[in-house]
Design a protein around this nucleic acid. Structure first.
Lengths: 202, 202
DNA sequence: CCTTAATGGATGTTTGCAGTTCCACTCTGG
DNA sequence: CCAGAGTGGAACTGCAAACATCCATTAAGG
């Protein structure tokens, strides 16, 4: 069989389908394939040509989402600068791929069922966010009484919550990063002598 | 028509079905009715006698879950004592109904679709947790730079995350309340001169 | 211009679950 | 002990979505 290079058309169509799948499933995990096809502006037939089985599209969408998230985090350079500043950059980066996050992490079964088959061996080869948290703990910036994994989960959870709030209009998109970082850094309690905007300098 | 009092058997069976539904759907929202019936240890026929349509069972399960959650919160007496102490009691109370929480709040569409029909008019008549948060803000205990609604969402999100971690064995059930409250109260950052167990007295 | 790849509409098949019916079995209270 | 409520096994229908096939149309490259 000849190794046929995918024509540009194939590549574009496939991207459109996968992107549409992430977007639609982020808002409704029960969406049907015709809905995906419509969102991708392709025919049902075409969708089936690219992804003969639903499972294949789910897997591709998850991988695409994880790639987008990983890319955004990498761009935020979590391994540079003051840990707090790095974390703020990461939060801002996550906001730019909120759709992917709400899709991938909106359904526990996705990560439990799809990822194991996608990446066989290492449970988490080297998660840059975990590394950032450990670095911050070592430098005395993050609470080392909490496990790095727990802090990471909280980071995801609070970010996810903020995305939802923005989605339903309860939180202004503009305030997202500030609200999330303030909550993460200080919790929900007041401080003696606090004033608005009195975050520590970095 | 005679007002026939439900026999004890009917009551027990219905409770078993609804409870099983909450438990099963908390872990897998896509679970089928036969799965629910099996978990409830009743026949599919019986389940259908009590809930002719799936929708009815979903609604009953959501209402049952909300009742359990509301009851647990009420028992925690969020309107008494120091706001921080009250919040800690609330978190502990939520942990006792984690299954209901993971079911009701694990699927956004449940609250969006089911609750509106269940409670026609008031969007949120008087949420005791919101009241607690406002009280804490007024007393200078909770951050009044954050909206009460946001703080409530964070409270739910962090608790929910902790339940998940316990579920998958990443967090010890024993540490749940302490971890959640510590995270909520102090965020994920370290404090100058901190020591383990140095939470403020109440 | 003409060949070929890509697309998508229409239509058909299959599968799985919700909803239904019927009847035999088993409790439980009088 | 016996009548009736409660139960559940089995089998059937209906439906919606996934999966598959055919063919006409369009777009792209030599």
């Amino acid at each position: 069989m000849s190794v046929k290079r995918a024509s540009s058309a194939r590549g574009r169509t496939e991207r459109a389908i996968v992107t549409a799948a992430v977007g639609v499933w982020a808002r409704d995990r029960a969406a049907t394939l015709p809905q995906i096809a419509e969102a991708a502006e392709v025919g049902r037939t075409t969708l089936h040509r690219y992804f003969p089985e639903r499972e294949g599209l789910v897997r591709a969408a998850v991988e695409h989402g994880l790639e987008a998230i990983g890319g955004a985090i990498a761009e935020a350079e979590p391994d540079h600068g003051h840990p707090l500043a790095a974390m703020r950059r990461v939060v801002a980066a996550l906001a730019s791929v909120s759709e992917a996050i709400m899709f991938v992490f909106g359904d526990q079964s996705l990560l439990r069922d799809v990822v194991p088959t996608a990446e066989p061996d290492p449970p988490t080869p080297h998660d840059p966010v975990i590394e950032l948290i450990r670095r911050g703990q070592a430098e005395g910036v993050f609470d080392d009484q909490l496990s790095a994994e727990w802090i990471q989960q909280v980071l995801w959870a609070v970010s996810y919550t903020a995305f939802e709030q923005v989605e339903q209009g309860t939180l202004a998109k503009f305030d997202l990063t500030a609200t999330v970082t303030r909550t993460l850094e200080r919790g929900i309690t007041a401080r003696a002598g606090e004033r608005a905007g009195s975050e520590p300098e970095l």
